[in-house]
Design a protein around this nucleic acid. Sequence first.
DNA 1: ATTATACCCTACTATTTTTGTCAACATTCA
DNA 2: TGAATGTTGACAAAAATAGTAGGGTATAAT
Lengths: 145, 145
Amino acid sequence: MRLSTRGRYGLKAMYQLACYYGEGPIPLNSIAEEQDLSENYLEQLVATLRKEGLLNSVRGAQGGYMLAKPPEDITVGNILRTLEGDLAPADCVIDEEYECAKEESCVTKLVWMRIRDSIDEVIDSITLKDMLDESEKIVTNKTKN
Amino acid sequence: MRLSTRGRYGLKAMYQLACYYGEGPIPLNSIAEEQDLSENYLEQLVATLRKEGLLNSVRGAQGGYMLAKPPEDITVGNILRTLEGDLAPADCVIDEEYECAKEESCVTKLVWMRIRDSIDEVIDSITLKDMLDESEKIVTNKTKN
DNA sequence: ATTATACCCTACTATTTTTGTCAACATTCA
DNA sequence: TGAATGTTGACAAAAATAGTAGGGTATAAT
């Protein structure tokens, strides 16, 4: 039950952009290099995030990408759902129209619902700002030692 | 981020066996039929569950499979981890030896850890007995109406 | 205007994972 | 013995994943 690289790389890239929030457009190759990702592949992810309204882009020389909203207004859930679709262990708890063969007596569905809900709670409660703060904390602790 | 059929089918099969707990060995074809699964495929899953000590098997005619422990002593987590491995969104929060490229400053890892932990909490708290009780409730409610 | 830079878009492909199938063999019960 | 059932391992089609490749378009600096 892993996330695909879309979600994993995408979150890394968004975090990196959050680090530069307010500093104007950041070129993709710099993001790709800093997070060690393929630039061509990252283009695809970034295009999706842009269409979803999480990123703005500026074309041309000195152009690049930037968060469309402040880091505190973008959740991990926003990012992962854009790139991966809903995060749930089974299709029957996502699509309302999906019908199990034995709907009447499907007890496993209750289990999948509880897993889905607990994931949602986590990813909707973490913002990019929270991640920046965490990073700050790590750096601070390191300096103390 | 779906579970594979291994985990989904496996839980269904284990639930079905829990329904028959205490009634001796149940042949696989009956389980396969009741839950509408491929018998051949189910064989593989059941073999894994047996090796893990969650099932006992009885060979020969009138043989079959049965839970190795009472339903209240088998959790959804036991079953899913046996069939799927650890349920986590990324490899870096499973394998202790796994090393991210940028371990020192990997903030995304904290996110994956929180997702993993919340999933663990759910699946380790639900037993087969709980599922039987839920099913009972559903049936009772239906009868009332 | 030219050139360098960077985003946009589509199609393609190699690899891996999933989801099984199939066949041969072992064991037990009647 | 023979039929029912479990055990094992090899094989394979299909789908999803994880990129690659490359041309097109827009912008800014010179």
